[in-house]
Design a binder for these strands. Structure first.
Length: 466
RNA sequence: GGCGCGUUCGUCUAGUGGCCCAGGACGGCUGGUUCUCAACCAGCAAAUCAUGGGUUCGAAUCCCAUACGCGCUACCA
């Protein structure tokens, strides 16, 4: 069997989309499962949408998830260059061969004419497609226009009344009537190829064996089938992944929604392995019904053919749960390191103090971001209080704590006996102390927290409360 | 409008003709451990398997139609 080679081809148009990572996960896992390579190619043919610096951000994102490509513009590889903008002469050469074989032609139609044409088609309830005006041009007419310097694009021809079929690894057998396939532009007037030409040429030249991409591409695939046929090349196996929908199920996960961007998860305190695990659950179902499993297990067990075809919604609540599971599975030392890596300001806090707070807040966190709100009171006095407190009750607590040894078991005995003596519920007394010391009505176990806070600081805060 | 794909609890799903009066997870609710929250444990509610027709002794599972949803329909990817 030939080597398995998968590829991701992002466009440098901004922060990477979580859908890209979802694809990378499949590419990566499939290539590892089959002892192949995973390639990254930069699809920077759209100069209008190009964003400076986006390429670096893409590497960062991949690295954060631990899904680094084996070949890329950055690390190079035997099929360089991996940036499409550096492969322009190549596309030109293949386009010329297509023209030579009569599978593509020059089109001199202006944007204005094209827009006009589409408008009329829409008005007449016809499918908006190129009307093939320039297909009728004679060789001499083409030569003359070229000589006059009239701008042009190259379009691919499409046979009439033919069924174009392909077998999709995920979606199964798909057929299209060639009459609904447009004479797609394959080379733009600026000399850049469109996606359709570039993807076919590059996937072939880079010896990509398996193409995984979102299902939105399925309607374009017949064009690619045709192109492979025109070139006389074998087509790689294609697998179209189900789209991920927005939380409300209306439309595919879009950049309008903040959580479509990888940045959202990084800044939100999510662990990359948890996000990957969640993404794995979207694309695949564990045979034992497990929902939490490491990437290695996904790579070992997942079956590309078992992927469903329906588009799931993105469920942030479930991601939070998965993330919480991963946080709780971390040992305290590792969680500490992760917190510092996530938020450098946590690294400036007293190290041993942070260490002691971690066991208390760990099971209360679903994201790293929550550490600050959960443990903030250890490091600074509350700036406000969620509710006022009863001074008389509080003074009972203060007296009890003043006289006790400073370990939480002794403190508990002291607080309980004080509340009994005063005829108030212990839980009410706990609550008053909690609000005065932490500013909040909920939080980590009170007495253990006070033990860490220290007697002096605790009493000082109670004093202020009175 | 055309073409393509899809439709099982609120959400993600298991399920490929009898083992399903449909199982699991998230979320919700109730109770327990407990100083609160969280966590953990126990339990509850929640799907006439989109609808209508077939096929079959038997259908969530196969076929057809309808409805709805999503995707594509650019010199964007």
């Amino acid at each position: 069997m030939d080597t398995v080679r998968t590829r991701i081809a992002p466009s440098p148009t901004g922060f990477p989309h979580i859908g890209t990572i979802y694809q990378v996960l499949v590419d990566f896992a499939f290539s590892r499962q089959n002892h192949g390579q995973f390639v990254m190619r930069l699809e920077d043919t759209d100069r209008a949408r190009f964003v400076e610096g986006a390429e670096g951000i893409i590497y960062d994102a991949f690295a954060w998830f631990g899904l680094a490509p084996d070949e890329s513009p950055k690390v190079g590889g035997p099929y360089a260059p991996y940036r499409q903008s550096e492969r322009l002469p190549l596309y030109r050469k293949y386009v010329d061969s297509l023209i030579g074989k009569g599978y593509a032609y020059h089109c001199f139609c202006t944007r204005g004419r094209l827009d006009e044409m589409r408008k009329t088609q829409e008005k007449n309830h016809q499918p908006p497609m190129y009307d093939q005006t320039c297909l009728k041009l004679t060789a001499d007419e083409v030569r003359a226009r070229l000589k006059d310097g009239i701008p042009y694009v190259i379009r691919m021809k499409v046979p009439e009344h033919e069924t174009i079929a392909f077998d999709d690894l995920i979606a199964g057998h798909i057929e299209f009537d060639s009459d609904v396939i447009d004479h797609q532009v394959i080379l733009k007037s600026d000399g850049y190829p469109t996606y359709h030409l570039a993807v076919v040429v590059d996937d072939h030249l880079m010896e990509i064996s398996h193409v995984f991409r979102g299902k939105e591409w399925i309607s374009s695939t017949p064009k690619h089938v045709l192109l492979y046929r025109y070139f006389g090349w074998d087509m790689p196996v294609h697998g179209h992944l189900p789209l991920i929908l927005n939380e409300d199920g209306k439309g595919k996960l879009s950049k309008r929604h903040g959580h479509a961007s990888v940045e959202y998860y990084r800044k939100g305190g999510y662990l990359p392995e948890a996000v990957l695990n969640y993404l794995s659950n979207i694309v695949w179902h564990h045979p034992e019904g497990k929902e939490i499993y490491p990437l290695a297990e996904f790579i070992r067990l997942f079956d590309i053919r078992s992927i469903g075809s329906q588009a799931p919604r993105f469920d942030l609540k479930k991601l939070d749960w998965v993330n919480g599971q991963y946080i709780r599975a971390l040992d305290d030392k590792e969680l500490h390191e992760r917190l510092v890596a996530f938020d450098a300001s946590i690294g400036t806090l007293e190290h041993s103090l942070v260490s002691r707070t971690i066991p208390l807040v760990k099971e209360r966190m679903s994201t790293l971001k929550e550490y600050r709100s959960l443990a903030g009171f250890f490091f600074e006095r509350p700036k406000g209080f969620e509710r006022p407190f009863a001074a008389d009750v509080l003074s009972i607590g203060k007296k009890a704590l003043e006289m006790t040894d400073w370990d939480h078991e002794a403190m508990e005995r002291a607080v309980r006996s004080a509340s009994e003596k005063a005829g108030i519920k212990a839980r009410d007394l706990f609550m008053e102390i909690r609000v005065a010391v932490t500013g909040k009505t909920v939080g980590p176990p009170l007495l253990e927290s006070l033990e860490i806070l220290g007697k002096e600081e605790t009493l000082k805060r109670l004093e202020i409360g009175l």
